Simulated assay, not measured.
Amino acid sequence: MTTLARLNALPKAEIHVHLEGTFAPETLAAWAAQAKVDLPRPVERLFEFAGLANFLQFLDFASGLANTPERLAQLAREFCERLARDGTGYADLIFNPTHWHAWHGQLPAMLDALDAGFREAEQDGLPPVGLCVSLLRTQTEGEAVELVELLTRLRHPRVVALSVDGNEAAAGRTGPRFASAFAQAKAAGLRRTVHAGESSGPEGVRDAVELLQADRIDHGGRAIEDAAVVDLLVQRQIPLGICPTSNVVLKVYPDLDAHPLERLRQAGIPVSLATDDPSLLGATLPGEYARAQQHYGWNDAVLRAVARTSIEASFANADVKADLLARLARW
Rank of each mutant, 00 (worst) to 15 (best):
T140L: 15
A301N: 13
L233A: 07
D207S: 08
S246K: 08
L4A: 10
H156R: 05
V306R: 04
P278G: 12
N54G: 15
G105T: 04
V43Y: 07
A84Q: 10
K251T: 02
W331V: 11
A29C: 05
R192L: 08
N54V: 00
V159F: 07
R265C: 06
L114R: 03
Q213F: 00
G89Q: 07
T22H: 08
Q74P: 01
V145W: 15
L56W: 14
G282S: 03
R206A: 14
A313G: 11
E44I: 01
E203G: 07
V194M: 09
I224S: 02
R263I: 09
L4C: 09
G189E: 11
D218A: 10
I217R: 03
G125F: 05
P127M: 09
E141K: 15
D319E: 13
Q34S: 12
E143N: 06
A185Y: 10
L273A: 04
G287T: 07
A24V: 09
A301R: 15
P42T: 02
T88E: 04
A326H: 14
E70I: 09
E70T: 07
P244T: 12
V209I: 05
G201M: 01
I311R: 04
V43T: 07
L250C: 10
S246G: 01
E26D: 12
L52Y: 05
K36E: 09
V17P: 04
V320N: 04
A35F: 09
R77G: 00
E312M: 12
T174D: 14
E288D: 13
P176Q: 06
F55P: 00
A223P: 09
A305L: 06
L93R: 04
V230M: 08
C132E: 06
R330V: 05
L65K: 06
D300K: 06
R77S: 00
V234S: 12
V194Y: 04
G130V: 11
R6Y: 09
W331A: 11
C80W: 00
H295R: 14
R177T: 15
W298K: 10
T2F: 13
A301C: 00
I94M: 05
F58H: 13
L273C: 02
L328V: 00
L162E: 08
S314H: 07
